[in-house]
């Protein structure tokens, strides 16, 4: 099944549930009408929250850049001795 079909199925299921709620009027229909709006807003909030949390916890590794510089110096020395042209860029 294509992935878009899965997502569509999920949406249809949610829509069916919503229409069911409208028909049965378990909760006041004025509230039910607003549910899709709530859904969209909460999805948006979820997205923003995930981006925010991801951004705050973004793993960085400044020490790796230093280690890489050391590796480069070491590699250059080794290769130069063996006649590999590692002069300039």
């Amino acid at each position: 099944m294509k992935h878009i079909v899965k997502i569509m199925t999920l949406l249809v299921a949610i829509a069916a549930f919503w229409i069911g709620l409208l028909q049965m009027s378990v909760i006041p229909s004025s509230h039910t009408w607003l549910l899709p709006l709530y859904l969209i807003v909460s999805l948006g909030c979820y997205g923003l929250l995930m981006v925010g949390v991801g951004l705050m916890q973004f793993p960085t590794c400044p020490q790796e850049a230093l280690l890489l510089q050391q590796d480069i110096v070491e590699a250059r020395e080794f290769l130069k001795q063996r006649g590999v042209d590692v002069g300039s860029d």
Binding site: G47, M50, V51, L55, F58, P59, C61, P62, E64
Partner: peptide
Amino acid sequence: RYVKGGGVHGWNLMRKLTSRGANVLAQ
């Protein structure tokens, strides 16, 4: 790059933001 023990160096805030946004969207 996005788990404990991984990481990125040399990205500015904009680059990180796009990367996170793209990742959340795709996930």
